[in-house]
Amino acid sequence: MRILAAMSGGVDSAVAAARVVDAGHDVVGVHLALSSAPGTLRTGSRGCCSKEDAGDARRAADVLGIPFYVWDFADRFKEDVIDDFVAAYAAGQTPNPCLRCNEKIKFSALADRAVALGFDAVATGHYAQLEDGVLRRAVDADKDQSYVLAVLTAEQLSRAMFPVGDTPKDLIRAEAAERGLAVANKPDSHDICFIPSGDTRAFLGARIGVRPGAVVDDDSGDVLAEHEGVHGFTIGQRKGLGISGPGADGRPRYVTAIEPDTGTVRVGSAERLKVDFIHAERAVWTSGSAPDGPVECVVQVRAHGGLAPAVAEATESGIEISLREPLTGVAAGQAAVLYRPDPAGDIVLGSGTIAVARPVAEDV
């Protein structure tokens, strides 16, 4: 097959490309230029898709003996990922830009161009397992990225390959060293790739501006502080609230609700963060069709945690998820990913974007 290997400049995508070459496929490497400032350099483990990363990807392709190109997707990335990220925070949500990048860029815009050029699939260095259209967690649980791939449709998965998902990360690094790839010990990227400073609040503030509002106590209704915009807060946040001391009960306060229309940020006890029902929109089912009736599953609401057994059911408006155990810190804009436990790697059933998370206290 003709395979387009998406090469970020990191060790995972380099080994993924190498494995596809070893499998006998006709492989071409491509690095996506996603920054409007191509001179930007990586700072340690922060950022990606920089000028340095492009150079690392090219050197890896040279070692593998495959053609290599750089494709400019900066405008599409800004529109579909960065602008979406900013808009979601302005609306009081907590988005995951990696999901949107996979959905809109790597397995949509990139894959569409690849198919148009005669390629059969796109191979990436994501940690997940994919066989016969079934998406599973990676063997390395600490590196598993199936959560950020759960937004992919059955059609998108049919054009994807994840060659490193069956191997622990330390062995991937060892393999890279054996192959003579200079990125063998390159640090993994952390945080949000387009915010290399790590200061998300400053990044959002520069684009959204000042939109004053109040921090209000859930119990008393008292205004505890003023703030410059709801984009500076997320559900479950404890620090940086601008308030003095704990609540009247002597316990810490957390952000329990964000109301973008009024600019109100509500804070309360940890108990108020517990939810047992989630309604998710924009449902995607990896099999290509929704299940018939309720499904016993495990739901994950954050990229690195937030799991609970649940019963999920497809509806006309999305997915209704009843949690068998309460979860905390569930925010609108996050993805709710449904898994079916399996010894060979939990199977991804589907996902949806969280629209409503109902607190336990509101049950009737």
Results as ranks from 00 to 15, higher is better:
E52M: 02
R19M: 10
A54M: 11
R58T: 03
L41G: 00
G24H: 05
V15F: 03
R46K: 15
T43I: 10
E52A: 12
A33Y: 02
S36C: 09
G47Q: 03
A17I: 13
D56L: 12
A18M: 00
G55F: 08
V20A: 07
R42Y: 08
R58F: 11
A23K: 06
V20M: 07
G55M: 10
H31P: 02
H31R: 00
P38M: 12
A18Y: 07
L32P: 03
R46T: 08
A54N: 08
D26G: 09
C48A: 14
G44I: 02
A37D: 13
R58I: 03
S45T: 09
A16I: 12
V27Q: 02
C49I: 06
L34R: 06
C48S: 12
R19S: 08
A37F: 10
T43Y: 06
G39R: 09
S36Y: 01
R59D: 14
K51N: 13
A33C: 09
L34P: 10
R59H: 15
D53Q: 05
R59I: 12
D53H: 13
A18G: 02
A33Q: 09
V28R: 12
G29Y: 10
T43S: 14
D56F: 05
V27F: 07
E52C: 12
G29M: 04
S35H: 03
K51L: 15
A17S: 10
H25K: 07
D26Q: 05
S36I: 08
A14N: 07
S36W: 04
H25I: 09
S36H: 06
S45V: 10
L32R: 03
V20F: 11
S50N: 06
H31F: 07
L34E: 06
G29S: 05
S50D: 07
A37L: 15
A23R: 15
T43H: 15
E52G: 14
V27H: 10
K51A: 14
C49W: 08
K51Q: 13
V30P: 08
A16H: 02
R19Q: 15
R46Q: 13
A18E: 00
V28Q: 14
V21R: 00
G44K: 04
G47L: 00
S45A: 05
G39F: 13
V30S: 05
A16P: 00
V15Q: 07
G55Y: 04
H31Q: 02
A57W: 08
E52Y: 01
P38K: 15
V21L: 00
D56N: 09
S35R: 00
R58H: 06
V20G: 02
A54R: 01
V20N: 06
P38H: 07
G44T: 00
L41C: 02
G29V: 05
R58G: 00
G24L: 13
G47T: 05
R59P: 05
V27E: 07
G55K: 06
R42P: 12
A37T: 14
L32D: 00
G44E: 03
A57V: 13
T43K: 08
R46C: 15
V30Y: 06
A37Q: 14
V21G: 01
A17Q: 14
D22W: 08
A16E: 07
V30M: 02
G24W: 05
S45N: 10
T43D: 10
S36V: 12
R58Q: 01
G55T: 04
A16K: 10
H31A: 03
G55I: 01
D56G: 11
R19D: 12
